[in-house]
Design a protein around this nucleic acid. Structure first.
Lengths: 340, 340
DNA sequence: TATAATCAGACAAACGTTTGCGCACAGGTA
DNA sequence: TACCTGTGCGCAAACGTTTGTCTGATTATA
């Protein structure tokens, strides 16, 4: 039998309520009794049942962490573990736990969140929102603090941390422009994912500022370079006479796939085609050529998000409703300057 | 206000206990009432408060997942997310949640586990045990099912899933022996980590079976190839006249570091030195040369462990107290056969 | 027809805490 | 002496469920 508050109370010769207060250092309890209770509690290795505590206090020291498609699918990409790591860092410091939500084929993400929220288990929610979702519907209980990681479209009132993907896309493009590239392809666009939408905006902005006409056919939607339809489209584009000399690519794995495809066409990187990639993964780092890639600092993304969430849970005043985490362009070997 | 069982009871004109039973399809409730209650519950979008439910039933549909050193440090290596992914897969199917434990500098792993166990939050525990720990002490509540991932030394009675690291080490070594290598170095030994201890045993076993004398100085403990003391030791070994022609290396990042170091010495892989690595990471896959590496299938490790844990939690009979997950040697470009 | 057996549902206790309120006792003031 | 004010602690309700036991009604048995 686990030791309960009653056991402590009995041995310390006080009532359960006194034990409860004594352990919280409530000033209504005399120093003497407080010491006695705490000693007994320590001796019995008493650890309050969080379930009971949470039931009445409606506070759980657990935050829900919702991965799109469940942890199952997300964990495949190093971005998510890195975010989780950031979250874990502050969770650990503040003695919070993380409850991972798991949507799957039978259980939509939305239902998974609902379950999480209504379960009463969590006192805050971290939403890794890759896609936009009607969050309002998700949260019958308006009082639950939510912080999103990733930009929630059209809802400025929400709390979130994010990368400024417009600027990131712009920066990637400018980096190539500065090296005299003019024919730049944008690879990995997907209207469902706001990261890519935003980066595309930045990409087009950069082109426009240099007065370069953009070619809509050079925004390629492939996320799965290995498969055929996009494969063929890309092959066609790169076999044409006015082929792109550079690519802004949404993800390192994608870039690596692209490089393989180009090699098959007799084109090499960076000699024939330059590539600026995103996410700065280990795979990209060790690739040959090592990828020049924008690091969006997922670790810090998680860290800030968790801090913000905790501020909200514990009612600390916070001014900003969102924070931007700076990105960093890591220069490696996949970009060459074009001759004059 | 969230809708409670009482709200449902009132509207369905029955008592709370009847609602409870109706929702569990308890046969003591007539079909008619059952239907009525369920309809009302659906209309109100009633989701039982798990906190309350768990308090009385002592069942939470949450399993604790304990990473060594907290999720914080673990998540850096792709092995752990992959395990988590496996766990998540079956958790998702069975509508379980994962509660991540987070030890840190102020809170030892042991205390973190104790907290987790006594919190009452979890009904099972998955222990990613890299190092041995006095598990018995950890579990005052003997009734909590625990499954370990990784071999718990000297406690055959526990439940665990594991890779047969002795055989894996042996296999890696044999793979080199078959290619006529005789001078083989073992890199990354660390007595605190049983994986490496076991693999070393396999390594020495393989050597012995071929009648090759083992050189204790060729078991190098470095895990941090970039830093100096091990760095120097390795440099010295590889600059000697009878330098190793092959290496069994405990981890892909380590191997990549080694390859860099060798390059600095004018030695190239696989021409001068062959490397068989472990963990088959993306980084190793894209490395040049691509690493021949043993995949220990962490995803399946997590999957089996979670299945085993659920079997125990839900009281299903299970015969084996542990299961071995097969490993796979992935052949790539970091090994060359030695001439006759 | 009386009695037992069965059935459907209600009642209430319990899970282990927190917390508002009440009460006794002490000391100070009138 | 009588009254007020604090101080320190206990009592009991509450959180939202589950579950053992009880009750009243129906049906079966003798």
């Amino acid at each position: 039998m686990k030791t309960t508050i009653k056991d402590v109370a009995q041995i310390a010769q006080v009532s359960p309520s006194t034990v409860s207060r004594a352990l919280q250092n409530n000033p209504r309890i005399s120093q003497e009794v407080r010491d006695r209770v705490q000693t007994v509690a320590k001796e019995l290795d008493f650890r309050p049942n969080q379930m009971a505590r949470s039931l009445v206090s409606r506070q759980s020291r657990i935050v829900g962490v919702m991965f799109p498609g469940g942890a199952t699918s997300s964990m495949g990409h190093p971005f998510y573990p890195a975010v989780l790591r950031g979250i874990g860092q502050v969770a650990s410091q503040e003695r919070y736990h993380m409850l991972l939500s798991t949507g799957n084929e039978n259980l939509s993400d939305i239902d998974a969140v609902k379950d999480l929220v209504n379960s009463g288990y969590i006192s805050g929610l971290l939403l890794l929102a890759a896609q936009n979702s009607p969050l309002e519907d998700l949260l019958p209980n308006q009082s639950l603090p939510v912080v999103e990681i990733g930009h929630p479209q059209g809802a400025e009132s929400r709390y979130y941390v994010d990368t400024d993907n417009v600027r990131a896309g712009q920066r990637a493009t400018e980096y190539l422009l500065e090296r005299r590239h003019k024919r730049i392809l944008f690879l990995g666009y997907d209207s469902r994912f706001f990261v890519t939408v935003d980066r595309r905006i930045g990409y087009e902005k950069a082109l426009k500022e240099r007065g370069i006409e953009r070619n809509p056919e050079w925004v390629v939607q492939s996320r799965f370079i290995e498969n055929s339809p996009d494969h063929k489209l890309l092959a066609k584009i790169f076999q044409g006479p006015d082929r792109p000399t550079a690519v802004v690519s949404m993800d390192d794995p994608l870039s690596i796939g692209l490089i393989g495809l180009l090699k098959g066409l007799g084109l090499s990187v960076p000699e024939d085609v330059s590539v600026v990639s995103f996410n700065n993964t280990a795979a990209g780092q060790y690739n040959v050529p090592a990828l020049t890639s924008i690091d969006v600092d997922p670790n810090r993304l998680g860290l800030y998000a968790m801090q913000m969430l905790l501020d909200r849970i514990e009612g600390r005043v916070i001014t900003p409703t969102h924070v931007e985490v700076p990105f960093l362009l890591i220069e490696r070997d996949s970009v060459a300057a074009l001759g004059k």
